[in-house]
């Protein structure tokens, strides 16, 4: 078997394994016993502890985007549209995608490494021997936590980003706080907010699922743990862009663009 055939076989094997993993998730998540305690613990770790990073990057992103957009708008004489443009750009696209990518870097890698090290140190086997379904306890709780926490983080990140943008607007001109927000909300529509908010659930699901999948099937000792963490970030980042592309196509077909 040549190298290309082996690579293709490995890819197809992994795709098959991932498909079975997804089916198993949907088979197990609604069945008792429910791991509420672990779910809320993960929500705290994944959501609350990611907030400072998401907030900081969001603030910088809003500020920088505003400063970068201003010269072009000044050239065309539409500087007054700056808050509306930044607001739409952040809420529709940049906020969800950048936050999801940061989330994939922080949470996807940490889930991949945590489950990977649990796998190689036999902690997952120990859990099974202790009468626990490790898939439910470790995978279902984490995937649900990422699915529900990322949209909340995106909402907070967007809000902080718009505050950053407000600061950026006021560096070169003076705009009141109420006028700034009025300009943003006057230009936002249902089709700007809802589709971009809904897709963040899929981003969160992808990050959690890939992190858990890579960690759960980690092998080759400590080297494998590092590889799991790394590939969890790479694969989930690519998936975020693919989901984004699909979401844009779907909203376009439905006439929301």
């Amino acid at each position: 078997m040549n190298r290309e055939t082996t690579a293709l076989k490995t890819f197809l094997d992994e795709a098959g394994q991932l498909t079975r993993f997804v089916f198993r998730f949907f088979r197990e998540w609604y069945r008792p016993r429910y791991e509420f305690r672990e779910f809320f613990r993960q929500c705290f770790i994944i959501g609350y502890r990611s907030l400072p990073l998401v907030g900081l990057t969001g603030f910088i992103m809003g500020l920088v985007l505003t400063m970068q957009l201003r010269p072009s708008l000044v050239e065309y004489g539409v500087e007054s549209q700056l808050p509306a443009m930044v607001g739409i750009a952040i809420i529709r696209e940049i906020g969800p995608v950048i936050t999801a990518l940061i989330f994939a870097g922080k949470i996807g890698s940490s889930i991949g490494a945590e489950l990977g090290s649990m796998k190689v140190s036999e902690q997952i086997d120990a859990m099974e021997v202790s009468g626990t379904n490790p898939f439910k306890y470790l995978v279902v709780s984490r995937v649900l936590a990422t699915t529900f926490m990322l949209p909340i983080l995106v909402l907070m990140g967007d809000a902080i980003s718009l505050y950053g943008s407000y600061l950026g607007v006021n560096i070169r001109s003076v705009t009141s706080f109420s006028l700034y927000w009025t300009q943003i909300f006057d230009n936002l529509t249902f089709s700007d907010v809802i589709p971009s908010f809904l897709k963040t659930f899929f981003f969160g699901f992808a990050v959690g699922l890939i992190g858990c999948f890579k960690g759960y099937y980690s092998n080759k000792g400590t080297e494998g743990v590092g590889r799991s963490a790394n590939s969890a970030v790479v694969v989930s980042s690519v998936l975020i862009f693919i989901i984004d592309l699909l979401a844009v196509q779907i909203t376009d077909i439905m006439g929301y663009n």
């Binding site: 090290s117 036999e122 902690q123 086997d125 120990a126 859990m127 202790s130 009468g131």
Partner: peptide, 27 residues
């Protein structure tokens, strides 16, 4: 009972929580 070669203690839990885990999980 099963004593694992690598001990398989849960790193994120204290000794108390490690010992309580099988008690709570086995209903």
């Amino acid at each position: 009972g099963f004593l694992f070669q690598s001990n398989a203690l849960y790193d994120s839990m204290t000794v108390r929580e490690n010992l309580e885990f099988p008690l709570r999980r086995h209903w």
